[in-house]
């Protein structure tokens, strides 16, 4: 009765010393290594020594992610074959693109009108026209388990990308480039809890700060805090970026979302608005990275006038 039990116990414990307890030194060493890594990365902030390791890791895993995403893409499209015929699908794509274009032109019309009325707006528009887009596809998405909203795209330094460039798609603002490797780049989405974007309410020209709420899926929301706290933003107003100096990290005039709720803080009288982003962050695929016009790139660059370069 006893023997088989013993035998099994011995086999199960054969891995480690004695009763299967891993050596205490190993436990301490591993936990300390983790703590050191966290302290190193957390306390040094932006130019952390871990960043080099991240970049090296990106050089290795970036191309693998590009390959895996490319291999999977045809299979992801399979359900669509059953949903509609090829020509119908093309038509839907075309209509959707047109719809998005119309919607964004309607959404920004208030902003555009105001911009034209104000002279400094004209220079901003001229600045915006000097940009071009590098098309890229999303090849990796950070899991919600990591509580950060970042994606990998399949364009990198060799396509002319640098950190702090604006990333958009045909619905609006997606995020900004955090770091690049030779062939891939990591993008911080605007809904990430660490993301702060300068926003402007299109109809009143009021400026404020957009903070991500850090949740993907249906609840992907942004909070807008207006600098002038006495202004009450209206529901349904469109918020666009107000842009940063020399267009980094955000160029101006990109639609971000519309105001879905407004809360008044009774204590200090300030207003907080919840923004519903135009971009569907759960289904990101084709995006464009805003680069200066005439950038050297290993792929076709879409210039502001629609021509390919």
């Amino acid at each position: 009765m006893r023997r088989p039990d013993l035998g099994r116990e011995r086999r199960w414990r054969s891995d480690s010393d004695g009763d299967g307890q891993p050596p205490r030194a190993l436990v301490v060493a591993l936990v300390l290594a983790c703590a050191t890594l966290m302290t190193l990365d957390h306390s040094t902030g932006e130019d952390s020594p871990v960043d080099g390791a991240r970049r090296a890791m990106g050089e290795v895993y970036g191309p693998v992610e590009v390959g895996a995403a490319g291999a999977v893409r045809p299979f992801v499209a399979i359900p669509e074959w059953f949903r509609s015929r090829g020509d119908m699908r093309d038509e839907i794509d075309e209509l959707e693109a047109e719809n998005a274009e119309l919607r964004s032109s309607v959404a920004t019309s208030g902003y555009d009108r105001n911009k034209l009325a104000e002279y400094d707006g004209l220079t901003a528009a001229a600045g915006t026209l000097g940009y071009a887009l590098v098309p890229a596809r999303v090849v990796g998405m950070g899991a919600s388990q990591s509580f950060s909203s970042t994606v990998t795209i399949d364009a990198g330094a060799s396509s002319g990308l640098r950190p702090d460039m604006t990333v958009v798609n045909n619905d609006g603002l997606v995020g900004r480039v955090l770091r690049v490797t030779r062939t891939t780049a990591t993008v911080l989405l605007v809904i990430d809890a660490d993301s702060v974007v300068g926003g402007r309410v299109g109809d009143s020209m009021e400026i404020g700060m957009l903070h991500g709420r850090g949740v993907l899926g249906d609840e992907g929301r942004l909070d807008l805090e207006l600098i002038d706290q006495s202004v009450v933003p209206a529901r349904g107003d469109t918020v666009v970026t107000w842009g940063s100096e020399s267009g980094a990290p955000y160029v101006s005039g990109v639609p971000v979302g519309s105001i879905s709720k407004v809360f008044a803080n009774v204590r200090d009288g300030s207003q907080r608005a919840v923004i519903d982003p135009f971009v569907d962050f759960g289904a990101l695929d084709l995006v464009g990275v805003v680069v200066p016009s005439g950038t050297e790139s290993d792929r076709a660059v879409i210039e502001a006038d629609g021509s390919l370069q």
């Binding site: 290594a33 966290m38 190193l40 991240r54 895993y61 990796g140 990998t152 990591t186």
Partner: peptide, 14 residues
């Protein structure tokens, strides 16, 4: 460390 991670390194390790 592998892209697209951007949180403080060492958290998943721990």
């Amino acid at each position: 460390l592998a892209p697209p991670a951007d949180h403080v390194a060492g958290r998943w390790a721990l």
